[in-house]
Design a protein around this nucleic acid. Structure first.
Lengths: 200, 200, 200, 200
DNA sequence: TCTTAAACGAGACGGTACGTCTAGTCTTCTA
DNA sequence: TAGAAGACTAGACGTACCGTCTCGTTTAAGA
């Protein structure tokens, strides 16, 4: 049984935190500059001043490096204002993501990551579990609480609702058929809550 | 100067249709078997019994080959039953796409293509113009006609509606967080038309 | 059966002679400058202006490149003057080799090659068959002819004789315990023919 | 200033003899099993249960480790029977070496060592001084004594004689063109002492 | 007994070269 | 002129060792 208290120091030279950060920074920079094809292990190593072997020691594939780089750049809390209305809470969340993708390098990063995920199940899983799921969970919780207060119709599939709110933003990011414009979040929430049919 | 009238036959040996089809078939097969990484130009050429140089002569990048292969395998008409209700028409469309992605190799192909599109603007444009746009156009037309008949509220953004209907299917295909289950299309249409709020 | 007459041209682009020579030259230069450790495939490729893949296509290992480089630099005929005496013929041969090793880069090349041969059976065989054996064969032939003329004692092992003539030169080259001095060849031949014991 | 008398013990933990032997044993084993390429520092360290840094602390290069390993395995005395004839003494020496190379792992070791020596002047020197020279010295001494007794012709170069006796064995070991067969030593000595020319 | 300094094991690290793979281009011959 | 064959450059891949380094641990002599 492992002792509680001060953790037993590992034997050899300790892992250098400097290396970890240099790799993740270099990766994010390269991705921002030239996208996935620019972020080869070779160039990440060169730019970070780190040996290729060291990278391979700590990350199994390039996808994992990109993923890690993405999460390191993303320390945003998923804050919710407890006093806001359901519509306002949802709009605020969607708006934050939309702005993040539109106004910061994370938009590009997410696109690259989505591309990698199509060919790397590990990355796809991690992206789902560590990024999509927590955000959807907040949405679904808000919806469920509203439903319990009787503010929503009963026969709703909340997972589908989450898709109808979040998916359009990713869709526009990935395919570029329409912009992530101001007011998009409000429209998404408004149209879905009220419905398209005229209310009498 | 190009001749008017019946197109002048070009001088030399005409392009071989055999080659075109062999390449597209080989590509689709390889993609189905092993995804994008399996569909290298080298292997496509070998499998098709065609020279690499010939491929490069007719397609600028691998992305274009994959794209062409995708469209060749996709001769589905975007049929609409003129007598169906708005809800039924929309549901039928979404359902067809969902089944296509779930039950045929096109699901995989679309995932690979979406991945390629993130790094190749040409492919992204072609995918948008030749695949997404025509399908969305039908949807938007149906919605506009319904709106003109007074069946929809006035202040709706139809492009956003199109996203709220189509995007969830692509989202689930690409990220795998939830299945393309039976009845998904109906839920998407039903929830959006009626809205989440209770109608009094 | 292959046709005689003009050889049928092979199908694709013909192998570039330029590449072959550039590689062998670069190899010899690097070996001369820094010995075996300097002659990495990477550096040979860079210096020759040739792709690594091309080198690996035509030579299985670095040893073979070095070997080829050695033989390319060595177009010396193994000429024998038919009118010379046995002693003079043998001395001339040994002297030529001794001078070659002492005065040209081939000495260094042979040392490197002998080193490679200890770890690469292919190289060892090639060296034996294409370099040592033909030279020894000439020696043995001369000795046999002399024996048939009654100029040599009968019970001699000619292979051992060949070793006693040639081996000292390689031995001094490889271990450096004594120089390849002028007159060495004459001493080798003289002492062996006459013997060490006083003749009465 | 260094103390006279019993060497002052150094302050810290004394060097572990266990380490030295473990390294040399591991090296010899690896060399025997897979030759030089198998005897990497990494593998020697692993097999010996020793840290790489410790090896580098006591041996400057791999060549030196191999050299040390060779000499550790070689505790053969260079014994000479004072009552034997010159021919018998020489034959006994050559025979012992030939058998050593042919019948024990030292043959392989010497081949690897000779290879290393071509690229490492230190190793070459050590090999010459600590291995070749003492053996040649015995030979030369025997020859000189015989010459002083008038048993040899006067104008002989004894260093060349040593080469004509020893070199053939190394030559056959390194190039493999002929075997280290029984009776080789006797032939070497016999032919050289008597000479090839018929004695009247 | 306690201190102290070197030896030592473990293992991270920056490098360099390995041999393989794919992308594209180029060159030659054939249909 | 289209196309097949295939040589070629360019450059990333992931692996293996190199030799150096930074730790914590062990060992024995000296205080």
């Amino acid at each position: 049984m492992t002792q509680p208290g001060p953790a037993r120091a590992p034997r050899g030279r300790p892992r250098s935190e400097r290396v970890r950060l240099a790799v993740l920074d270099a990766t994010a920079d390269l991705l921002t500059e030239g996208g996935l094809p620019a972020a080869t292990i070779e160039r990440i190593a060169a730019r970070a001043g780190v040996s290729k072997a060291t990278i391979y020691k700590w990350w199994p594939t390039r996808g994992h490096v990109v993923l890690d780089s993405f999460f390191t750049r993303t320390r945003d809390t998923i804050a919710v204002d407890p006093d806001a209305s359901l519509a306002d809470s949802l709009t605020a969340q969607l708006d934050a993501l939309s702005a993040l993708f539109r106004d910061t390098p994370l938009g590009r990063l997410m696109r690259e990551l989505a591309a990698v995920a199509q060919g790397d199940a590990d990355v796809r899983d991690a992206l789902e579990k560590r990024w999509l799921r927590p955000r959807r969970a907040v949405t679904v919780r808000l919806l469920r609480e509203a439903a319990e207060r009787g503010e929503l119709r009963a026969e709703i599939d909340l997972e589908v609702v989450a898709d109808q709110l979040w998916a359009p933003i990713y869709h526009r990011l990935l395919f570029g058929h329409a912009p992530l414009r101001d007011g998009l979040a409000a429209d998404l929430v408004g149209q879905l809550l009220t419905g398209l049919l005229p209310r009498r």
